[in-house]
Structure formats: C-alpha cells, structure tokens
C-alpha cells in the first residue's frame, strides 16, 4: 500500500509560491545530505545551518501555498505527496552535491540570486510573501557570504582545488539561466506587484558572481545555452531519487501521523 499523490490546483499564486518552496526544500535537502560527512567539523555546522534556514523557508512557503489553495493540503502533503512531474524547483538546486566544490558553487549561484530576489520581494504587495522575504533575505545574505568565501579559497587555493572548482563552475553554469525566467503565469503576478521581475536581477547577479570568480581566479563560461524545465516539472534524473528518499515514509504509511 502506498499513498497516492495529491492533486494541487495551481492557481498562479499557488504555483508561484510552490516553485519557491520547492527550491528551498530541495536545496535544503541536498545540503542536509552533507551532515556528518563534511570536509571539517566546522563546515558540518555551517552546511546544517544553511540547510535549516532553507527547510524553514520551505515550510513557510508551503504553509502559505496550502492556505492560498484552500483545499485542505498542508506543508507535509505538498512536500511529500507530489511526484517528480509536480515538483516545480529550479534544475540547479536538484544537482547532486558532487564534491565540496560543486556544493559551494551551486550555493554561490543560488544564494547570489536568492539574496537579490528576497530583497526585492520585501516590497511585494502580498504581505505574507513580503514577510517571508524579509526573513529569507538575511539568511541568503549569509549563505552568499559563506559560499563566496569558500569559492575564493578553493579557486585561489591549490592547483587541485582550483581545477575542481573550475569544473564545478563549468558544470553548473547552464543551470543558472532558469533563475531569471518568468512565464505567463508569473507575468500577471509581476504586473500586480505580488512578484518581482527576475530578469531585472540578472545584471547585479552577474556582477556579484563575476566579482567572486575574479577573486577566485576562475573563469566564467562563455557558453550561454541555458537548461530549462524545472519550473514546469521537467527535471533531471536526479530529482526522482531525491524524492524517493524524501517521501519514503509518507508514501509507505498512508495517512499516518509522525
């Protein structure tokens, strides 16, 4: 016996909120995979702190999505009872941890975006989203700082670390473009002042990331082909495995309370 997936009525605001909730949960989950396995104990602490921030953001966003949807779903149903095609996160955040360089570059790319994004969203006409943004902005500002410091150390560290972090930048670059996209469903929210236009964030994001790359003696790829699909549930093969682990209990014991 397994629990079937729920059906979510994805009105524009529900869909919009779910997408951000999924980003936070999936990245938080990925970071939590490091717990107990980091390069130094101090970094176990740091990675867990970032994971906890993101899981916290996800919970607030799911809670709000459930409330807006108004069909009796809750944070756990939304997290645990949607299948891979219903997940709306960016492809970037589901990338496997890889080595520490991959994890930190992924964190840099996402946090540099998230910090700008949440700062903008503090002015949302939606009071709940604005409040979540105010809290999340402080968290992502720290994530950005931590990831930047590490990318600089790895880039300007040893030959091996430089090579590894350059590979990570090259591997992950194609997943950054999706952060700045907005489809028709989001356009309406942007026009209403509920959401901000993510395309506007690109120049500043590029400037932050370029600055870190320069300090780290890294080269940003010139290839501007960007992978898309996560926002519409067209994911990489990695997400299904992540979900099968994440959702194992809720799927195996339908309706149980934990």
């Amino acid at each position: 016996m397994t629990a079937p997936s729920i059906i979510v009525s994805e009105t524009p605001l529900v869909l919009y909120t779910l997408r951000r909730a999924d980003d936070a949960l999936i990245l938080g989950h990925r970071l939590s995979e490091w717990c107990g396995h980091a390069p130094m104990l101090e970094e176990d602490m740091a990675l867990s702190n970032m994971a906890l921030d993101l899981i916290g953001q996800a919970r607030e966003l799911y809670g709000y999505a459930a409330k807006v949807e108004g069909r009796g779903n809750d944070e756990d149903k939304l997290a645990y009872l949607r299948d891979v095609r219903q997940y709306r996160n960016l492809l970037l955040v589901e990338r496997p941890n890889g080595d520490f360089a991959h994890t930190m570059v992924r964190q840099l790319f996402y946090a540099a975006f998230a910090d700008l994004y949440w700062r903008g969203m503090m002015g949302s006409t939606d009071a709940t989203l604005a409040a979540i943004a105010a809290k999340s902005e402080k968290e992502s500002a720290y994530h950005l700082r931590h990831a930047s410091e590490w990318v600089i150390r790895l880039g300007d560290g040893t030959d091996e670390s430089h090579a590894r972090v350059q590979v990570a930048v090259d591997d992950l670059w194609a997943y950054t473009g999706e952060m700045f996209g907005a489809d028709d469903a989001e356009r309406g929210l942007i026009d209403a002042g509920v959401a901000i236009d993510p395309t506007m964030l690109l120049p500043e994001w590029l400037s932050i990331v370029s600055h870190v790359a320069r300090e780290a003696t890294l080269t940003l790829p010139e290839n501007d082909w960007m992978q898309q699909g996560g926002r519409d549930g067209r994911h990489s093969e990695h997400l299904g495995h992540l979900l099968s682990e994440l959702q194992y209990m809720q799927r195996s014991f339908p309706g149980a309370t934990w």
């Binding site: 101090e42 602490m45 740091a46 702190n49 720290y142 700082r145 931590h146 410091e149 150390r153």
Partner: peptide
C-alpha cells in the same frame, strides 16, 4: 574570516 563564520555557526545557534 572563516574563524568568524565558524564562530557564528558554532556558538550562536
């Protein structure tokens, strides 16, 4: 720099 961040992550949770 990293000591300051580690102190934040370890001693101010």
């Amino acid at each position: 720099t990293m000591a300051l961040q580690a102190a934040r992550d370890l001693y101010t949770r």
